[in-house]
Structures are given as C-alpha cells and as structure tokens.
C-alpha cells in the first residue's frame, strides 16, 4: 500500500486522510504519551474517588460519572513512577475499552495529535519508565517524542487480578 502512495502525490494526499490517526496527548511525570482518540470517551477534571479494599496501589477506586460507577486507575502508579502530585492540570480520561469502561488519572492533557500511520515509528530501544510491552510506537511532535500507549494491553482486567492476588499474598 505505502509503495503506491509514493508514485502519485494525489493518492498520497487522499490516503493520508484515510490513514490519519488521532491521538490524545498527555503528560505523565514529564514524559509525553498518546492514546488513540477513538478509545477516549471523555476527559473530566479530577473528582472524588472512593478507594477499594484489597486493591493494588495504582487502582485508585471508583467514581461517579453521571450515575455510572467507573473504576479509576492512576497511570503514574501503574507505570511505577513516583506518586502523582495532584495539580490543577490533573485530569481523568475516561476510556471506552469495551466491555471495560475505565478512568485513568494523568498529569495534564496536552492536545490532540493527528498523524499518518506511516509516521509512527517502532519504539526505540531506550530506557523509559514504562514497560516496553505497553508501547505501540512513537511519533514526533514538535521537539517531543510521544510514546503511543497500547491501552488495551496496559489496562486489561486480567492484569488487575494477578497483581491483586500478589499484593494479597504478600500481605498475608
């Protein structure tokens, strides 16, 4: 597919629109991350979150989203970064990972990035705070490198269970 594009500039233009992907860019502990915009249901400001017993530390608890009860995960803690300072910029991104509906806490929301699929590069083999399995690839935005998160892999229910039972085993 991509070879064809290089021959005709017109086709390239069209394809670019078709293949364009948009990401919601946010900051976590100074690093830039992106998640596919189609997975984002909405972004809300930080609200009261009720903790759950026996939950792993990154599992912040549950919140009320207009009558719906939603679990909230602190991405910083999930990625074993230092504990988040809750600032005025902090926000909860509500993700629709059907059947799961989850909120994640991030430091700040930056922008929506539109990019072509071809611009997504393989993740460079550098040290990041985030486990490399969770990274789909990287894109360049201005001077920054944005790491694209594989949200489904990062936040799957199975993961919560295993980690939870480990915490419990340690506590016992």
């Amino acid at each position: 597919m991509t070879e064809n594009l290089e021959h005709s500039p017109d086709a390239h233009q069209e394809k670019a629109v078709a293949e364009a992907e948009r990401f919601l860019a946010f900051t976590l502990s100074g690093e830039h991350y992106g998640i596919p915009l189609l997975k984002v249901k909405e972004v809300i400001e930080l609200t009261k979150i009720t903790p759950l017993p026996y939950a792993p530390n990154y599992f912040k608890g549950i919140m009320n989203l207009r009558g719906q009860v939603i679990s909230v995960v602190d991405l910083r803690l999930k990625f074993k970064m230092s504990k988040a300072e809750i600032g005025s910029q902090s926000a909860i991104v509500i993700l629709d990972l059907s059947p799961l509906c989850l909120g994640v806490i991030v430091d700040s929301i930056n922008c929506v990035l539109a990019t072509e699929r071809s611009e997504i590069q393989a993740r460079p083999d550098v040290e990041s705070q985030v486990k490399s399995d969770y990274i789909l690839g990287v894109i360049r935005s201005n001077q920054d490198l944005v790491l694209l998160l594989d949200v489904e892999r990062t936040l799957n229910a199975e993961d919560f269970r295993t980690i939870e039972s480990q915490t419990k085993a340690r506590a016992a």
Partner: peptide, 8 residues
C-alpha cells in the same frame, strides 16, 4: 461494578 473488579 465492572468486570475489572470481579476479584473483590
């Protein structure tokens, strides 16, 4: 509660 907390 959602499936993500079915261990509770």
């Amino acid at each position: 509660l959602g499936n993500e907390v079915d261990w509770l």
